[in-house]
Design a protein around this nucleic acid. Sequence first.
RNA 1: AGAGGAGUGGCAGAGUGGUCGAAUGCGGCGGUCUUGAAAACCGUUGUACCGCGAGGUACCGGGGGUUCGAAUCCCUCCUCCUCUGCCA
Length: 428
Amino acid sequence: MLLLSYIKENQDTVVKGLEKRHFPEPEKTISKVLLLDEERRSTQQENDESLHEMNTLSKQIGQLMREGKRDEAEAVKAKTTELKSKTKDLGDSLSRIQLELENLLLTIPNIPNEEVPAGKGEEDNDVVFQHGKAPELHDGARPHWELIKEYDIIDFDLGIKITGAGFPVYKGAGARLQRSMINFFLDEARRAGYTEIQPPIVINEASGRGTGQLPDKDGQMYHINEENFYLIPTAEVPITNLYRDVILSEDELPVMNVGFTPCFRREAGSWGAHVRGLNRLHQFDKVEIVRIEKPENSADILKEMCQYVQGLLEKLELPYRVLNLCAGDLGFTSSQTFDMEVYSAAQDKWLEVSSVSNFRTFQSNRLKLRYRSSADQKPELLHTLNGSALALPRIIAAILENNQTPDGIRIPSVLVPYTGFEMITNQD
RNA sequence: AGAGGAGUGGCAGAGUGGUCGAAUGCGGCGGUCUUGAAAACCGUUGUACCGCGAGGUACCGGGGGUUCGAAUCCCUCCUCCUCUGCCA
């Protein structure tokens, strides 16, 4: 959620930012916000005055009662009747206006920062970096959804039997590869200074609102009716919400957390013919890095996090490219996002495996996540950032496809100490 | 899941209808003393909103209600503790 004070002081920037995102009728929305805010302030002033008067009279009554001046007290009481209903009305309008303002603010996405390219959709994203080259595959090389059958390492049909489409079962070497990658990613993050967190993978409504999944992505999360809980779409949600309603001291910064969790996404309406195999799932594993930084550092930290993720891809020997997402393709809560895509040779396709974002104060404003730079300073909102490091299924898809040989699938050497095998073959 | 108890400031803990944003202790910050530190003593110490300011308003787990007036009474939800039951 954007800061109201920011909107007030930077109307032009906000309107231009929303235009860049192709947000409909930005000017109209912003003037509505400002109008509601004005209404809120004047109503609050009236309300406060009215409450003040009530408080004063009530104290008088108490005083008179104590002095035994019953009749005088009753006289003052009579005066409060009218005031009371006025106060009630004012209070009602105030909360109605506040709710309307809050709901309107919740529909406004984050403002893209200056480095974000203009554009409408994914075709306008900027490729800012590219590394590695496509492997030369042997004749008869196949996409991963065929390879997993041949080597019997991932079974979609069994997943359909147990749950439904998009919930694969990992078997044998497939399960071990998956577990190895989780450990590898967590160990790498730990070496880079991140603290490992194992959060709940079920969250309440307040957490969903805190990081901005609610109300924006309500239909995209699995919901548990009895408890009004949601299955997490990413570890970002529980890990960032650890800091909801928290005022950190300066020496607690920066916060660098990493967590592995399964992630659940309904992906309602987003399935197409091109989405096959591991490319899109309802449940998948992901290691997520989450950082909380002082505002002045967040821009540099975003780049640092990208470097970190790129390092992982290089260690896995995967060809990849980095996209600076254009304003139209930016997530609702993000001010800038870099996507990492690996090249999948057998599909001749780029697969998104990481998304690294700076939310600036958009999340911390909802979370009320602040820090105090010194004892006599007012608390200041922090910046939150996060990134996948990494999401597993598409990495597995890329490894299977890029590393296939007539004799089996070669495991990247950095993973071999974790898997305990160098090749996936039919003998496993 | 059933029965009982409890949720108050960074922490501990008093307060059961009026001058309570809230005693007291601890902790934190500033100072006096000291070469320095400790001890002792003095002062200070929540957040948000409105207001140029003086100042005002709200917040005692969340929400609603009773009352001129609620931390205090009522309803409801949440959380924690104890016992019983169940169970990785």
